[in-house]
């Protein structure tokens, strides 16, 4: 009891900077956004009237939000498992003491240096149908690269965006998994080897369980990035192709160039808060899903 209280002044002092920062720049705007979501405001966002919490359910059930939610979820389904598998695959491939492995590791982690803007512009240069590098090189084999173009075909636009995201996130997943692999005690492998476990069994029985914390981290981060995808949409497809709007994610629905609610603070806030709640549900579900494995790994 005494000990618990003795630390209190120190703890308060040490937590004060971060608490102030979070209060002003995260908690306050979050609360404010919740409230703004119940308002109807003019274009400048200053003269507002109250319309109540009803606005949240209206936005949620509107067809635009539902369509955008479906696109965001599809994008997550395309990028998260692929990103995870590629990240683990590359990290395992490069987790050997070979001459020159440092070079390959640098290559595999290189895309961590690209921002969303940089990565997306790279893929515009590659995929633009008329003058894109890939479109010209491979149109003989894959005609749709040129006509109508991957980014213009409602069937392939979202996968093409996913491709650019997976590439951009590869460096990040690679680094996190590599760090996870290096923290696995070598003696675990040795005893499995002595027990006669095949390399595949060593991978499933030792590597994967021990990697679980890293994997959980990656899944949560990649899901968040997919649900919050905006820059890649703005630069690659602008939410199109129309009329399907096959790549209009929730953030693009809110902030995109052709957004119907750009200058409508109330609807914008409501949609953003709903996006936050969806991300929250995912994080909780994922954490719960991994919890058992994390325990087991210990």
């Amino acid at each position: 009891m005494k000990r618990r209280l003795r630390d209190v002044p120190g703890a308060v002092a040490m937590l004060l900077p971060s608490m102030l920062l979070l209060a002003v720049w995260t908690v306050y705007p979050l609360v404010k956004a919740f409230i703004n979501g119940t308002k109807s405001c003019d274009s400048t966002g200053t003269r507002c009237t109250d319309v109540g919490w009803q606005q949240y359910s209206n936005v949620w059930s509107s067809r635009e939000f539902q369509d955008a939610l479906a696109v965001s979820l599809k994008l997550a389904l395309m990028t998260v498992p692929t990103g995870l598998i590629l990240g683990v695959g590359l990290a395992v491939l490069a987790d050997k003491h070979l001459r020159g492995i440092g070079f390959f590791r640098t290559v595999f982690s290189s895309t961590v240096a690209t921002s969303v803007a940089v990565a997306s512009l790279v893929w515009v240069v590659l995929l633009q149908p008329e003058i894109g590098v890939l479109s010209d090189l491979f149109s003989g084999w894959i005609p749709s690269l040129k006509n109508p173009g991957l980014l213009r075909d409602p069937g392939t636009a979202l996968p093409a965006v996913a491709l650019s995201s997976v590439w951009a996130n590869l460096g990040f997943t690679f680094i996190v998994v590599t760090a996870g692999l290096q923290s696995i005690p070598r003696d675990l492998y040795e005893s499995a080897y002595v027990d006669g476990a095949s390399s595949w069994r060593r991978f499933t029985n030792v590597t994967l369980p021990m990697l679980t914390p890293s994997l959980l981290f990656i899944v949560v981060v990649l899901t968040t990035r997919a649900l919050q995808a905006y820059g890649e949409i703005a630069l690659l497809t602008q939410g199109g192709p129309n009329p399907e709007k096959s790549t209009t994610t929730i953030p693009y629905l809110i902030y995109g160039e052709n957004s119907l609610i750009r200058n409508n603070l109330g609807l914008k806030s409501a949609a953003a808060v709903l996006l936050f709640l969806v991300s929250l549900v995912f994080a909780v579900v994922q954490y719960r899903g991994f919890e058992k494995r994390v325990q087991y790994a210990r």
Binding site: N58, V59, S62, R63, F65, Q66, L73, L260, F282
Partner: peptide, 20 residues
């Protein structure tokens, strides 16, 4: 988790966001 939210998404919908 994905399916539950997708299902929820499929259940509603109709009006435009700007009708709200």
């Amino acid at each position: 988790g994905f399916a539950a939210i997708a299902l929820l998404a499929a259940c509603s919908g109709g009006d435009s966001i700007t009708d709200t």
